[in-house]
């Protein structure tokens, strides 16, 4: 079973100048509070790495900072979500990928994959459907108000990515042949820049 939501793309290999970074780690090797630190370390690293992809002198310092900060925020949010919602009893690794390629401009795709249980899948898919059917700005403010009332208001990071960073977002849910009760979810965020490093 595979379900796609939003803007999800599977193949990148045929694009010009394609390269990627992939990181995987055990979801249960250390207590959550100690593993949490990895998110910031990985996000800082990929944010620094990404600037090497843009042709030299094409990005002014201000634009470089904007690209770095955007990738840092997005990578950190996806990693935090993957860690927070990961199915605790599962040993399926948390995977993080950064894809870079040229199409009509430079595309930056950040993905995080983790395992979840059926109940988390149902809640998450209901949230995704609400998000995709809403105006992101209105939905964002509604979620912040809900959050202040101590209501469950998930996904503020994801809505911020769409609303404030002009990114496209998509999800893939799949089951593994060996274990149908475990769902593997990948969240994908896509940013597009022109060759001068400006957001398209």
């Amino acid at each position: 079973m595979t379900n796609l939501f939003g803007e999800y793309q599977e193949q990148f290999e045929d694009y010009k100048h394609y390269e990627f970074l992939a990181i995987g780690y055990s979801p249960s090797s250390l207590p959550l509070s100690r593993r949490w630190k990895k998110n910031g370390i990985i996000a800082d690293f990929v944010a620094d790495y990404i600037i090497t992809y843009f042709p030299e002198n094409s990005t002014k310092e201000k634009m470089q900072n904007r690209i770095k900060d955007s990738v840092n925020y997005i990578a950190n949010e996806l990693l935090e979500n993957a860690m927070k919602f990961n199915e605790q009893i599962s040993s399926y690794p948390i995977k993080f990928k950064l894809h870079l390629f040229e199409d009509t401009g430079v595309k930056v795709v950040v993905t995080a994959t983790n395992s979840i249980c059926q109940k988390t899948k149902d809640t998450f898919q209901a949230f995704i459907q609400e998000l995709l059917a809403s105006d992101p700005e209105d939905f964002y403010l509604v979620q912040l108000e809900r959050s202040a009332e101590a209501e469950n208001a998930p996904g503020i990071g994801l809505i911020t990515i769409i609303n404030d960073y002009n990114a496209k977002i998509g999800w893939k849910f799949e089951t593994l042949p060996k274990n149908q009760s475990l769902i593997i979810v990948t969240t994908m965020v896509k940013l597009e820049y022109n060759l001068q490093g400006l957001l398209k």
């Binding site: 840092n72 950190n76 935090e80 912040l144 959050s147 202040a148």
Partner: peptide, 17 residues
Amino acid sequence: VFLNSAGFRMLSKFVIA
């Protein structure tokens, strides 16, 4: 220099308060 979404929720909660 950096604030994650949970931190932004905290700031917005304070502003609403």
